[in-house]
Design a protein around this nucleic acid. Structure first.
Lengths: 133, 133
DNA sequence: CCTTGACCTTCCTGTGACAGGAACCTCCAT
DNA sequence: ATGGAGGTTCCTGTCACAGGAAGGTCAAGG
């Protein structure tokens, strides 16, 4: 199977698949013409990677997860631990974004949004302490 | 004022301040010895940038916001519009992260986390359709 | 006067996970 | 033979800086 087919089946761009080979996540064989030649196991790995990436795991996490997947003697605790650390990072990001969202929403609600120049958003950015809690 | 003082007062790393000059966000004067020489207006701009960045605005957004701030004839609608677009992006990111969080939380909760190899997280990643809703 | 150390300068590289595109090769159908 | 759709490698760009090398500058202490 060529990269185009694999791309269509896995939903991953060909660029991404080549990149994954570059960094050693997959090792497809080569045909005589130099084309990458993918087998079912490669497809399976790519699908695994696609799902792990969709859950937000980093490439290095993916590498570890794949290693664990292929390690018959793994402990599920290791997987769970990795996932929990990842969850903590997600929660931190959500928290950051939520705080930005709250602050920005309040400012937006205070802005008239008309053709006059007065703007609480700019006032806030410029360092006016609004005094409102 | 030298970059170290400005860094301490603004809370921005010296690296960041130099970068902001590189990309034209600030234009501090130079002393005879080649050191950057910051005045109050520079400090004010950096504080503005720091707050805008803390709200998650991109550098290009910051550039626009500063231009609007210095434009006496601006319409607050323009500022509000920019902020609302940014808010929409924040909401999209939160939504993405929230979905990851939900999916991952469910998987983590189903994982025993002991020394046995069986792991629903890996099963899911490998493509097992759990059938559970 | 000399040195030490803190501060400053520029310049180059690396980050994460690819996307875009150039230049070129290969295959299949007509 | 040719045209077009695939494939290949390689280089650059993204975003907002961080890290570090190599070297210049300044004030204080011996």
């Amino acid at each position: 199977m060529n990269i185009g087919d694999v791309s269509a089946r896995s939903g991953l761009p060909a660029k991404t698949i080549r990149y994954y080979e570059d960094i050693g996540l997959i090792k497809p064989l080569r045909s005589a013409n130099g084309y990458r030649s993918f087998v079912a196991a490669d497809l399976h790995k790519l699908a695994f990677l696609g799902r792990a990436r969709a859950l937000g795991f980093t490439i290095e996490d993916c590498r570890t997860l794949m290693a664990l997947y292929h390690d018959e003697s793994r402990a599920s605790a290791d997987v769970k631990h990795l996932a929990q650390e990842h969850l903590a990072k997600i929660e931190a990001k959500i928290s950051d974004l939520q705080m930005m969202h709250n602050a920005l929403t309040e400012l937006v609600e205070c802005c008239a949004g008309d053709d006059r120049p007065d703007c609480p958003i700019l006032s806030d950015l410029s360092g006016i302490s609004s005094g409102m809690t």
